[in-house]
Nucleic acid binder design. Structure first.
Lengths: 209, 209
DNA sequence: GTCTATATTGAGATAGAC
DNA sequence: GTCTATCTCAATATAGAC
């Protein structure tokens, strides 16, 4: 399964992919500055010029990792935006799309976290908040639709969006730290339903959904 | 300038604290292994033997940072556990207690995240999952009380606990990345209420809380 | 040119005076 | 409790033999 962007499934792509994977892994495990171009090409099983041909520099491959991920991320968000249906379902689709991407690119996510939270290590600047902002915006948009249509309660849509994001956050965190032993797609869907319906006893019936 | 003898207890504490703060800051910004004892003592305005007197080693001061934080964390959890009242209120207290601690020790939290998500950098082993586990356990305990008493819906208490933790997570994340421009204690309380009552329109009145 | 022996440096850690 | 001065040790850098 050739998942990563770049399209064509040629040999050229194979080297590119191997380089991207090797670099992602090494940057994460040893840090950006501590990783040498030599190590990357060795791990990828290619020679230095191959890296420089495709990415121009160490910084170039780093940017490629981030740009490709961001692009894939935006594609998923856009995909859901075009979808119709009730807001609850759209939220579920959104979370699932992003969650799937998250799982597909767990190693990149680790790298992002390492750079974002870790010491700066001379890594090129990259605005990681874009991910969060784009996600937030998408969630908020759907929440607003839901409020407007009466599907959701009246209230601060911003707060609702945050709660949904928190739900996503806890599901991803479990995957990150307990590697594969998280609650998965289905667990995430369950949590979302819980958030929509509320934890507290509402006095009457428990909504089916 | 150097007041010898009559070493008042407050002087002692001052040096210790300054060392802890300096080390926390440097470990976070530059990484554990990249930070030298020299830098720490210089930043704290003391000399090397002071560090070795209080903490025994570089690893010692690192452990002290973590141990003190963990202890403070457990104290807060215990404090809430002894409290009575409805589960919803207890959850709120719990989140607020932990959130306050989080804000008080933002710099330590940054360090924990940096070590947890970043490259290992030779930092001493420390089981950061203890924080999460203890927190999870406390939340779960309260959720179970709530379900038992009929205050909360019947259902997977584990899921409910996760949703509550996600709510906490998103509030803290905002403080971490937008430094001081987060939603604060009150925002967190709002989010919790939302989670308890649900986002979706329930058919009847909106619960007052 | 390469190899081995010897500085040099900078790290964590300590001794003993005050 | 804190200081000055010093130690041990490893990684690196360099010199000079071969």
């Amino acid at each position: 399964m050739r998942s990563t962007a770049a399209g064509a499934a040629h040999e050229e792509t194979a080297a590119k992919e191997k380089l991207l994977n090797a670099a992602t892994d090494l940057f994460t495990r040893r840090g950006y500055s501590a990783t040498s171009v030599r190590e990357i090409v060795a791990a990828a099983g290619v020679t230095k010029p191959v890296l420089y041909y495709h990415f121009g520099s160490k910084e170039g491959i780093y940017r490629a990792i981030m740009d490709l991920t961001q692009e894939a991320f935006n594609v998923r968000l856009e995909k859901v935006r075009r979808r119709g249906g009730p807001a609850g379902k759209k939220l579920q689709s959104l979370l699932e799309e992003v969650f799937d991407l998250f799982l597909e690119r767990l190693s990149v996510v680790r790298l992002i976290f390492a750079i974002y939270y870790g010491p700066h290590q001379g890594a090129p600047d990259f605005d990681f908040n874009q991910f969060d902002e784009a996600f937030r915006k998408s969630v908020l948009e759907i929440v607003r639709e839901g409020v407007k249509s009466g599907e959701f309660r009246k209230g601060r849509a911003e707060d609702m969006a945050l709660v949904v994001m928190g739900t996503f956050s806890v599901a991803t965190e479990l995957e990150l730290s307990h590697a594969g032993r998280g609650i998965g797609r289905n667990g995430l869907a369950r949590l979302l339903r819980l958030v929509l319906n509320g934890i507290a006893y509402q006095g009457g019936k428990v909504r089916a959904q």
